[in-house]
Nucleic acid binder design. Structure first.
Lengths: 187, 187
DNA sequence: TTCGCTTTTTGACAAATGTCAAAAGAAAGG
DNA sequence: CCTTTCTTTTGACATTTGTCAAAAAGCGAA
């Protein structure tokens, strides 16, 4: 639980009462490689913190799997749309490695919000940071060529290249596996 | 100020004290067509609510203006990255029509957060909804063809087509004006 | 209406990327 | 060590989209 504490402290230092309440509400879960944390069509009722391992989020489109996200250590994870709107998820989240997470339910989290203004602030701040990251990715997707996006990935997230297969990385970049293979051989 | 009250009530009904405090912190501003609400290189110190008019956000890239966002009535507006991180904005926000907005400063907003848990919750919830919208646009950009994105725009935001020029709409969709013109003639 | 300006459309061609199929390479299990 | 399976690379070609230039259409002011 230390990793989580350190992680949230970087966003906003909550009081020790708030931390105590939060840690009491958390459950540790371990899932094996290839198993699912979220399945499309079901409501995602939990917010997770990924302590160890690696996950990917993907959509099914015309029989293909399109990866839109990877999660590594110290990432918060959920089907954001489903968790917030309480509607069935349209995407899957799957473990790419054996993974250890901490889990809190929607209900428990919102009870904590009522009791601890602190915690709601923490989540507001984390949300904002995740919004900014998404915005950056959106801009890159709209304005940059495949090659530029690949170079940006090397720059910003080199770990992806080591832990993720080419096909899934290509999907994440919004290009075909063959195109990524060719870009890579140019550099 | 009614429009704002109605708008936020749809997200989360705040107490009348919180509303009183909020409305006291707001300033009305009116800006003429073509003037700037945010200029790149400057820190955006305010969060705005657009009561009447129309705005666009754009980047300058290789001498071209790339529009990434339009705002209409009942939208919250700011350079999110700049407002949150307190760093200079990389984009511009410009009025496309004479516009009326309500403005609150970063400092005032955060003082209100301290005093009214309510208001912080409201903003958390609004942020979450805006996150979901961005996520949807991101998915469309990654997975859909220009034509599909255009059809989705007709479906979701037909008002854009009436109030925005073709060139700016094309930029918003991430395609060239010529391509959009050709797509339009096919349908 | 007519002139001048802006926006939209069209054509010709180039560049980027996708698709399909096959070959090469790497990894895992017996 | 060999076989099987999965991943990556390569080739040939199709499709999508971009770029540049010019024509056409729309629009406001005199």
């Amino acid at each position: 639980m230390n990793a989580l504490y350190n992680c949230i402290s970087k966003y906003y230092p909550i009081t020790s009462e708030a931390w105590k309440a939060l840690s009491n509400a958390l459950t540790q879960i371990k899932i094996p490689r290839n198993s699912f944390l979220v399945k499309e069509g079901t409501v995602c009722n939990n917010l997770y913190f990924l302590e160890r391992g690696c996950l990917r989020g993907y959509y099914s489109l015309d029989g293909k799997e399109i990866t839109y996200w990877f999660g590594f250590e110290d990432n918060f994870v959920t089907s954001f749309y489903s968790f917030i709107s309480r509607k069935p998820a349209v995407e899957n989240i799957q473990a790419l490695e054996d993974s250890t997470l901490w889990s809190i339910s929607y209900e428990a989290l919102h009870l904590l919000f009522d009791a601890h203004h602190d915690l709601e602030r923490l989540v507001r701040i984390i949300n904002e940071q995740y919004y900014i990251r998404l915005e950056e990715r959106f801009m890159a997707m709209q304005f940059k060529t495949a090659k530029e996006r690949y170079e940006q990935l090397i720059e910003n997230s080199p770990h992806i290249l080591h832990r993720i297969s080419l096909g899934q990385t290509a999907s994440y970049l919004g290009i075909s596996q063959e195109t990524l293979s060719r870009i890579r051989s140019q550099v």
